[in-house]
Computed example of a mutant assay.
Amino acid sequence: MIRLTKVELRRLISRRLTIVGAAGLLLISALLLVATWADARPMTAAEQQQAQRQFEVAHQDWVDHAAENLRQCEADWNSQPDPKPKLEDMCNYSEPKLEDFGKPRTVFATIMPELLQGSSYFLAFAAFLIGASFFGAEFSTGAIGNWLTFEPRRLRVYGSKLLAAASGFVPIAAVILAIVLLGVYLIVHALGDAHTTGKVWGNLTATGGRAVVTTALAAALGSVVGLLLRHTAAAIGVVMGYLVLVEGVFGSFLQKAQPWLVRLNFDAFVKHDTQYYLNECSASSDGGYNCNYVEKTLTFEHGAWYLAVLAVLMIGIGGWVFHRRDINS
């Protein structure tokens, strides 16, 4: 198995799509760093003057109309049916401050978790695409039949291809995430607030590690889908159809099904818990309905078990099909 996996790794690394994909990931990472630099740049003198003018207008309006706005808000609050928010929450007209206007200072500990999460998306997509092509192309060209004449034990061939696809993307994902993490830190250190703690670095490192795991998993599952559909384009079509129809349309209509969708469980695993919202309605005293969006938490454990079960099922189905199905059919 080790020898076969090494052979498959060499094949994966030498493929043109793998090289193009790795170059594309580097380009996306560079664009991400450029966007971070643009967001972190301090305001120009003209932008500072414009922020000052906006602050002065808003502050003068607050001085002139604060009492009037408060009275009107209190009247609106009194006329609302129960249950209603607290008066101090609904009618909180705080004095405008200059720091509230213009561009806020970029904080490393605030932006980095979301950037790592975004990076995990394009890493997983690239890994899935290349994994699907890695296995699917062998059926399109007929190379898989020739390979099985040298190694007829199909499950060993199947396992070596999945291991090669998964392990081959571990260093790629680790390098890309390290570039993003260190690049953003250096940019924010020069232009914003890069102060952080050991705990934050530990959390960011753990998030990056989980993103590496999901990248390897996406490469393996892409290989399985490429095997089942025998064509890279078909695998991409199925994934895009799932994202649009199931995650987009189905998920928006049946909100209670969100905990069983792939994307949310992916987020829960990478981010170590994630939040989503449900629109919950209850009968009011006047016979109507009061509806509010309620925040829910999908736990890391749920996401980890979901992805593990999905991986086992898909890999098991792929192994059964590869072992049983006629290669030429």
Rank of each mutant, 00 (worst) to 15 (best):
D193S: 00
L181M: 08
A206R: 02
T297M: 05
I2W: 14
L264S: 09
L123A: 11
L182C: 09
Y93C: 00
A268D: 08
A268R: 14
F125P: 01
A109S: 13
D61Y: 11
Y242K: 14
L278I: 13
N69G: 03
L313A: 14
N292V: 15
T215H: 00
I172M: 05
A206I: 04
P83L: 04
N292R: 15
I176Y: 05
L254C: 14
E301I: 09
S140A: 13
P104R: 02
S133H: 08
Q52A: 13
G24H: 01
V321S: 03
Y277Q: 14
G303M: 10
T215V: 02
A22Y: 07
F101P: 02
H195R: 11
R3P: 07
L228F: 00
S79W: 05
F108E: 04
N292P: 12
P259Y: 12
L261N: 07
Q49D: 14
N279I: 10
A45S: 13
G24A: 11
A23F: 10
E151S: 14
T207V: 09
A233T: 01
T232C: 01
S140Y: 05
A143D: 05
E88S: 12
V249G: 07
I28H: 06
A164C: 11
G288R: 13
C281Y: 06
A132H: 02
H59A: 08
L228G: 01
E8H: 14
P171C: 02
V212Y: 05
V309K: 06
L87G: 07
A219M: 01
W320E: 08
A268N: 09
W320N: 04
M43I: 06
S223C: 07
G318C: 01
K97I: 12
Q80K: 10
S140L: 02
E295I: 15
A22Q: 05
A109P: 09
P152F: 05
G251I: 02
A46R: 08
A126V: 10
S14W: 06
H195E: 07
P171I: 06
N69Q: 13
T18D: 01
Q50N: 08
T197W: 00
T149S: 14
Q72M: 12
W320T: 11
Y306A: 04
Y276C: 08
G303E: 11
P259G: 10
T207D: 07
G192C: 06
L186A: 14
T110K: 15
G241H: 04
N292K: 15
A127S: 15
W260E: 07
K199A: 15
F322K: 03
S94N: 06
G209I: 03
G303L: 08
A45N: 11
A304L: 15
V262Q: 11
M112Q: 14
A166T: 09
M314E: 03
A137C: 03
E56I: 12
K161E: 04
R263Q: 14
V321G: 00
S140K: 13
C91T: 00
V63A: 08
H59E: 13
G288Q: 12
G192Y: 04
F250C: 12
